[in-house]
């Protein structure tokens, strides 16, 4: 798997998003950069409020233009898209980039059948007849594993279960064969058993359709299972990124250690108490100027009040002062069971 050889699909560089609030301009995303190659799965991990969703929405142009300021650059297939006129951006949205929302219960307009909604998207981008679009909707619903697509196509959202709705949402996102799928916590609102099915579905579809996927999640288990690249976000910044194997075998940032420590081990003796990161994540207004994680970090030191340096190990990078010499010992302290080996 040498993804780097594939062409770059999406290149986000120095993206910052701030929005107006009653207490002035608040930065929700700070200087975020990442790349997605064709056919690759990138996972963005972080707690709620870390800026993951804001990042995605603003690069899709779905933010509230009046209240939000977006800086930095985003190129899609080598073309900068942040300043595209609305009509050209619309041609990309839905056709080349598909969005899968977090909550399938609210992501579909309640008054139309799912077939109508899928056909609407197809017809917005392709000049085909209503009947052909309807047929395509049935096919798509079959692809995403609905057992009786011919019947489901005429169902209203409220007549379907959560898992079926999420499949319908995925079918809709796929309807124009997008090269990039953006999935915003696609499994959070689902039952555990259905979660696994939806993840499997995404993996299979990636194989069949060849779309790259940006998967936003806070579930490290899902990340380990599907992602090739991982970006860990905390307080509006990407604090660590790299290939999944690297991140899971040798995480660099103390926040990533905290996330790892909070995964219950599958083997070995049962832990009496799962580790958790002390404290609460900061709100966008209270993020300190230096390292955002410093107030909760067990290894914080005075220098953390300044902007942390970017440390690189191979393809992996992290924003932290802890250097290569000191890191292994601290990591052992943070991840004592050392299931990583």
């Amino acid at each position: 798997m040498v993804q780097q050889d594939k062409p770059i699909l999406l290149d986000v560089a120095g993206l910052s998003v701030s929005f107006a609030s009653d207490r002035g301009l608040v930065q929700a995303v700070r200087d975020v950069s990442f790349r997605v190659h064709e056919g690759e799965i990138l996972s963005i991990v972080g707690e709620s409020g870390s800026g993951k969703s804001v990042t995605l929405l603003s690069l899709l142009g779905l933010h509230d233009r009046k209240a939000t300021r977006v800086e930095g650059s985003v190129s899609f297939r080598g073309k900068p898209i942040l300043d595209l006129p609305a009509s050209q951006m619309r041609a990309i949205r839905g056709r080349e980039i598909g969005l899968i929302s977090q909550d399938p219960m609210t992501a579909l307009t309640p008054v139309y059948t799912i077939g109508w909604q899928i056909a609407e998207q197809i017809r917005a981008h392709e000049n085909i007849s209503a009947r052909a679009a309807h047929r395509r909707a049935i096919e798509l619903l079959g692809e995403v594993g609905l057992s009786n697509p011919g019947e489901a196509v005429d169902r209203y959202p409220h007549q379907l279960s959560g898992g079926m709705r999420q499949r319908a949402v995925i079918a809709m996102a796929l309807s124009c064969n997008p090269v990039l799928l953006v999935a915003d916590e696609p499994t959070t609102a689902l039952d555990v058993t259905v979660q696994a099915q939806v993840i499997d579905l995404l993996l299979r579809l990636r194989k069949d359709f060849g779309s790259a996927i940006i998967l936003i999640t806070h579930d490290m288990g899902v990340v380990a299972e599907v992602a090739e690249q991982v970006a860990v976000m905390y307080a509006g910044r990407i604090v660590e990124r790299g290939r999944t194997e690297e991140i899971f075998s040798a995480p660099l940032h103390p926040y990533t250690w905290g996330l790892m420590a909070s995964i219950p081990p599958l083997t070995g003796p049962r832990l009496t108490k799962l580790r958790s990161i002390p404290g609460m994540p900061p709100t966008p207004e209270t993020v300190p100027d230096g390292c955002g994680f410093a107030p909760r970090c067990a290894f914080a030191r005075p220098i953390c009040a300044e902007r942390p340096p970017l440390q690189k190990v191979g393809g992996q990078a992290a924003l932290c002062v802890i250097d290569d010499a000191e890191r292994p010992a601290l990591r052992r302290a943070a991840l004592p069971q050392e299931e990583l080996a």
Partner: peptide
């Protein structure tokens, strides 16, 4: 958009 407003709402 929801997420942006959510972010505001978190600390209201």
């Amino acid at each position: 958009m929801t997420d942006i407003t959510e972010a505001i709402r978190v600390h209201a």
